[in-house]
Write a protein that binds this DNA or RNA. Structure first.
Lengths: 231, 231, 231, 231
DNA sequence: GATGAATGAGAATTCATTCAT
DNA sequence: AATGAATGAATTCTCATTCAT
């Protein structure tokens, strides 16, 4: 009867604990291997070896190699991102929410380095294997930021002249790159300790407002807009 | 000396103009193909086809497939980044320099979309094929930012309490993600128009300073640092 | 004697009725699956699924996948062919015997389409998995024809100038192809209705004897024998 | 430029003689291997080995393993069958045409035993890989027979009470099985020598017409039609 | 006896790279 | 220099068979 494949069970959460254990073992092994070598450089054999199962066993739990990445997002990453939401909901003010988002983000990624590496690498691919899943997660993340900024605008702690679409990317990107750097220095420092200074930068910017000379938001002359003057 | 390979010549720019033309043709074809399919999904045959040369010809100009990516960074990307340096040097104040950096960055990436896509995707891989080149470019970029921030601190337009290592990433990340978003929406809007608002965000932050309630830089209680309190 | 396999019992018909029932269930399921997909395209899992048993159970009743085909011939097909013998024995004249053979053949194959399909397909393979069984059955079939023709020659209803080896194939082939055509048109017409006209053709041939111009059994000129004259 | 694949050239006959030579070498090697082991038991490696090329080379000339079989029918078998048509057209009377068809058929199959084996085996599969090609060839063959019989009916040498659809299968099947038998006895006798006796059987049938007792076309009693009486 | 998860040998296919022309 | 046919190592995936439960 068995079509020799259990992966669909997983999708619908009907697995027995025993199988679940092996499923997670393979998934974690895969993430480790992906983190070390990148998705395309990794072979199914390596994953099987790392998980301590036979090559064929992988295919009982995953449709194919790509599906491992898909499920990484669906099953592992989205768990983490749902935790962001929960954490953010625990505090009330916009600024506190932002701090907590950043803190949790860095905290979770620091505590699961392999996930962090795979997430950062694969999410930046244009042709992504797990496009659907990534889109769902990104949406969740940007929704959190949107809410948070809108709240801040209401309670007066955040500027009202902000283009939300840009702000979301601005915040997201700043956090992302801090994580990236940490990854590429092999996690040699405490990522979480960057949370507060980073939140501070996002909120206050790097300008020295109102102190010495107030920032003159001097825009580039119009003619430069269309074409950068390479004088 | 039956030279069946010219790639080392290229590296040191000793190619004849005629060959140079073919070299660039192949490199551009490769970037286009990489942008469309990702490095690993692209085949040497596809690149050759796009460049209008035979498969074997690729190996007269490049050591191997990986080398194409290496030279993309060495030859193409670094050109662009050197232009950043030039542009930034043209203005004097820190804030102007920052604006010009962002502007040029977005401008150049918007004008060479294939480069932008390949750069964003491949640069985020941990196991990078062109690690050395990327590091050089990143260094160049971060040096520009460092200088710029230090200048700003001297002339009083930028905060003096900034951890430079973090600021660099903060700025880099914010710009990066704005580009990423643009790529993933298929470049449907004018990326360059984001330059000024983005510079503004980086300088002023999102906080509403001195207006209503000044931002209380309230740090999370100490005990939360080690472990996020999931209360 | 931890017997984890009963297949040898089956071979000698010592199974208990209960097991026999499961044995037949699996065999029929296999034939159905083989008929639909061909032997090589069919998987043991599919057969198990069709039979409503676990994959491993198959191996309690059959030595391996090939053995299913072997037993198909040994157990199923040979039953049918023995029925041919019985039917033929019921009538006395050669012509009646031939008619009855054809009729029964078409009748049985029409009534067990899966058997017909598997039989026709697998019997024509040169490297046959069940070679021994097929040979036995073919022998049985040809023996029937031999007897029948010899009888016909004795009672004067059949020509005496026949090369028996050829006649057997002639008859066998004609019947076979009629069944084949029926299979490949998805059994859309009544196969049994072909019995009489087919018998007629075998007995009378297609020639218009003694009516208009008697068939001149004109043989090709000698020189054409060794090599077809492609004039 | 090359997509590393030449098979489409072959399809449209644009190959250079040199490539053509290799194409035919592979095709013949494949047919030999298929004949010896059956299509499914044969591996691409075996074919490559037999042809004296690398495994990958196969894929320059054939889309995939299945395509080898498809092209066997399209390129090799159909050539042979077109020769049947030519031969048949060379003579005028129906009976001569039939003799020549049978003769050529046996002659060609005897002279290309591997082709004969593969043709007989794969053509009888219900789920055929080269269904389209087989259908074309079968049509061609049956058209020849149709014409031939119709001609015979006109010139009075063939019976007018024939159901053409059945006659075609009757003739086809008789020839087929003679070839089959020859294959399965490892071609130990002269197949072509069967041509005349076989043609004779087809034309005259096995009945002893007009000599002793004329064949009473006695049909089985009606009640036996629906259900064979297994008394 | 029955099960079905696990195994791993084996097969098809791809593609970077070479090299004779 | 340029070509592109040929190569064969490497990889994914399948599935018959086993065996602990």
């Amino acid at each position: 009867m068995s079509i020799h494949s259990l992966w669909y069970k997983r999708r619908f959460h009907i697995g027995t604990p025993k199988n679940m254990e092996k499923y997670e073992r393979i998934l974690n092994a895969a993430i480790k291997v992906f983190a070390e070598q990148g998705f395309h450089q990794s072979t199914v054999s390596q994953i099987a070896g790392e998980a301590g199962v036979a090559d064929g066993t992988i295919y009982l739990y995953f449709k194919n190699k790509d599906d491992i990445l898909v499920q990484f997002y669906e099953f592992k990453t989205s768990q983490v991102f749902q935790r962001f939401r929960k954490e953010v909901d625990k505090v009330d003010t916009a600024v506190e929410k932002l701090r907590r988002l950043i803190y949790t983000h860095l905290y979770e990624f620091q505590n699961d380095r392999h996930m962090a590496i795979v997430f950062q690498a694969e999410t930046h691919q244009k042709k992504r294997l797990a496009g659907e899943q990534i889109r769902k997660i990104s949406k969740l993340y940007r929704d959190i930021i949107s809410e948070l900024v809108e709240l801040g605008q209401e309670d007066g702690t955040m500027r009202r002249d902000l283009y939300l679409g840009l702000v979301k990317r601005f915040i997201n990107g700043a956090i992302d790159e801090v994580i990236n750097s940490w990854i590429h220095t092999d996690g040699s420092y405490d990522l979480v300790s960057m949370a507060d200074p980073l939140a501070d930068l996002i909120i206050r910017g790097i300008g020295n407002h109102g102190v010495a000379s107030p920032v003159k938001v001097r825009h580039l002359p119009k003619e430069q807009k269309g074409n950068p003057v390479i004088t």
